[in-house]
Design a protein around this nucleic acid. Structure first.
Lengths: 159, 159
DNA sequence: CCGAAGCGCGTTACACTATAACATTGTGGA
DNA sequence: TCCACAATGTTATAGTGTAACGCGCTTCGG
């Protein structure tokens, strides 16, 4: 094994390639480090914390430190490739960011956090988004973004 | 000064008294420590962090440590006297908890976070709550509570 | 060719947030 | 009296996040 970095499943590699294309369209670079961090987030079926990412990262980059992963995450967050789940202090990959290219305005997203299995799914519910917009306007509040994190039990766990 | 603890404004003292009454109705006790922590949260015009609370607390209780304030906050959170703003890792007093007594089911609340002045106001918007309930049901998700934190610029800051 | 400027990352150190675990105190009841 | 429990004290540590400085590399104008 002389390859640099990790290799992920074909599905994830395809999404990483798509992310790389989006980056270069924007004049940014999905460097090997950023690609690896994004791959690790995508490969996790649950939200993953920064220090868990760091542990994984160190398998291929022994000297990685907190700023290593936080800087990569900052880059990925800015571009919408990953999201942060505030209640969990953890990160998830954004399914839509690499699917349909370059939706410029950051769609309002919501998270469904299953307290049973720990998985988090993302939705883009227009009803919630517009209800928030109306409530903000009614309060004279010029809103820029909203964090919506819904806790409960997912369909699979509820049986 | 031989009084124990701090003293707050008459408005806040009145709310503290109301909270104490609610506690005793529930068989709980708003101890001097808990009362003081709640008073400090209510006296802050912005969300206040646990360690800022700890600093204030130490003026009257020199030996206070992190668990001191976190345990008081846990008690106050459980009863809805304070809320945590996840994006800020900080706490705010709940205006409605001490106003109208004993609404048993925890109303869905939302926060409007002004990125300009740092103040956070609380709303109880039925439109947002029902939109969340609909979206969750559509996803087969049995939701128990939702965190809604809306960032933007408040009316006062926007001018 | 040279030097400045900017990006990406390494590296060290530290700040901030939160909890575990055990000890102590006081109160009320069997 | 002894026990049980609630509340807090106390010590230590875990978990999350950032500041600050330096270095190598590329690019680009002079």
């Amino acid at each position: 094994m002389t390859t640099s970095g990790l290799t992920f499943s074909p599905e994830i590699e395809a999404r990483l390639d798509a992310a790389a294309r989006l980056c270069s369209q924007q004049g940014a670079t999905l460097t090997p480090l950023r690609r690896e961090v994004l791959g690790l987030v995508l490969a996790s079926d649950q939200p993953i914390g920064a220090y868990a990412l760091l542990d994984h990262l160190r398998r291929s980059r022994a000297t990685a430190a907190p700023p290593t992963v936080y800087r990569a995450l900052e880059f990925l967050l800015e571009r919408g490739f990953v999201h942060k789940v505030e209640r969990l202090n953890a990160f998830i990959g954004c399914p839509s960011a690499t699917d349909h290219a370059g939706h410029d305005h950051p769609h309002a997203v919501q998270f469904l956090i299953c307290t049973c299995c720990g998985r988090v799914t993302e939705t883009e519910d227009e009803g919630i988004a517009s209800a928030i917009a109306r409530a903000a306007e009614r309060a004279g509040f010029r809103h820029t973004r909203a964090t919506v994190e819904i806790e409960g039990v997912c369909r699979a766990c509820a049986g």
